[in-house]
């Protein structure tokens, strides 16, 4: 009986994980609060079920075969030591995975285009823009339209699409708010676009998912989704009560180290663009081939980022030419 139990263990574990996920709020990836995360969750379930169609019978088959054909005295099971080929059977098990993978492939291609992070979300509300910079070891968020900045904290209105522009001041990181949707790398020298939206009010966990040095684990932040009124009054509050982020203040932030939540009523004009282009020297710039937004042409004022919209919607495509 032992092999049986052992065969079933992984299945049980997976089932357990799945059942837990249904009710456990802690499984934040499977408890999305926004359209992107919702579609990704659907996709996770669809692909799991498709795979399970093959996996579960295989596991059962394994258990049955191992049990039935074990070597014991007086076994009545058939024994054919030279049976080594059956075209019919082999066509079957080349065929089944091919069909499953074909279906999964179609689903994947559709979703890949649908969930392309740089694609703007359909909504009748005007999206807000948040410029995200990963630093050693903290997140700097800037609201170019509102003119405020924060460290390790985001507040967004519910039901309003958010356009995140991601870059990095140093090593690469990955910007991830599991309950709103999947992550995207923040890389220096380029501005990537990630569209997310919260459908419900709530407080969501966010983190830097890509290792970038000593205090990497401290790069977590909270995303609060609130009503639009609350969001607006928060903006006003920050504007009236918080200090301004000066260039010196920014230089201080670039010093390695983790940070508490900070709020700033304003930030230097064009700071994000400066961060993106800081490593580009001269016109044969390093990052042009990436096709990412150079973000410098039209970005002298803080609120011009919105103007980037037309040009920047599907600009995330890198061209890894030559590989």
């Amino acid at each position: 009986m032992r092999p049986f139990i052992r065969m079933l263990t992984p299945v049980l574990f997976v089932l357990m994980a799945l059942t837990l996920s249904g009710c456990g709020e802690q499984f934040i990836v499977l408890d999305p609060k926004g359209p992107i995360g919702e579609s990704q969750k659907d996709l996770i379930y669809i692909s799991t079920i498709l795979c399970a169609i093959v996996i579960v019978p295989v596991l059962i088959l394994t258990a049955v075969i191992v049990w039935r054909y074990r070597d014991k005295p007086g076994s009545k099971a058939s024994y054919k030591p030279n049976w080594e080929h059956s075209t019919k059977l082999e066509i079957t098990w080349w065929g089944i995975p091919i069909v499953i993978i074909l279906i999964l492939a179609i689903v994947t291609v559709r979703y890949t285009h649908m969930l392309e992070p740089s694609k703007a979300l359909a909504s009748d509300k005007k999206p807000i823009t948040i410029q995200v910079t990963s630093m050693d070891w903290k997140w700097l968020f800037k609201y170019p339209e509102e003119g405020i900045a924060t460290v390790n904290y985001i507040k967004i209105p519910e039901d309003v699409p958010v356009k995140f522009q991601l870059t990095s001041d140093t090593a690469m990181n990955s910007f991830w708010i599991p309950q709103l949707g999947g992550q995207l790398y923040s890389m220096s020298g380029m501005a990537m676009t990630l569209h997310l939206q919260a459908d419900e009010q709530g407080s969501y966990f966010g983190s830097g998912a890509n290792f970038n040095g000593r205090d990497f684990a401290q790069m977590t932040f909270t995303v609060d989704a609130t009503s639009e009124e609350e969001y607006k009054s928060w903006i006003e509050e920050v504007k009236s009560t918080s200090p301004a982020l000066t260039m010196e203040g920014y230089e201080k932030l670039t010093e390695p180290g983790s940070s508490e939540v900070m709020l700033f009523s304003s930030f230097p004009v064009g700071l994000f663009e400066k961060i993106v282009t800081q490593y580009i020297n001269g016109d044969g710039g390093a990052h042009q081939q990436h096709g990412s937004e150079p973000a410098s042409e039209d970005a002298d004022t803080a609120d011009s980022a919105a103007a980037n919209d037309e040009s920047g919607t599907d600009n995330n495509a890198h061209h890894h030419g030559g590989h």
Binding site: Q40, L43, S47, C51, V58, T62, T112, L115, Q183
Partner: peptide, 26 residues
Amino acid sequence: IPCFVVGGMTGVLLSVAPADFQFHNS
């Protein structure tokens, strides 16, 4: 066999690019 079959399956889950946005680096 069962171990690899399940591991292979989670691999296929990871290969679904948009879903990987949620699995990656986790």
